[in-house]
Amino acid sequence: MPEVMFRKGDNDQLIFYVAKKDLEETVVSLEFQQPDKWGGEMVLSDGQRYYLAPLDAPPKLPITLRVKRAE
């Protein structure tokens, strides 16, 4: 369960950053992006998949959250 910092990149894409693992990837798809639900399964540009327990509202970025590796 890595701690991930999500932030907005230069072109408004969502960046997924794990300092300990040197991982800086773009999120290419995120399951829920509605005003009342944000999170779910996400796919990174290198194909890795993670799961974030959905939040009740889109967070103010950047934010550090815990995610799980998706099955």
């Binding site: 910092m5 932030r7 950053y17 300092a19 103010k60 950047p62 934010i63 550090t64």
Partner: peptide
């Protein structure tokens, strides 16, 4: 970069 990322999160 670590401290810059931290300041972005904590102080926007």
């Amino acid at each position: 970069n670590y401290i810059a990322r931290h300041m972005e999160e904590k102080y926007a």
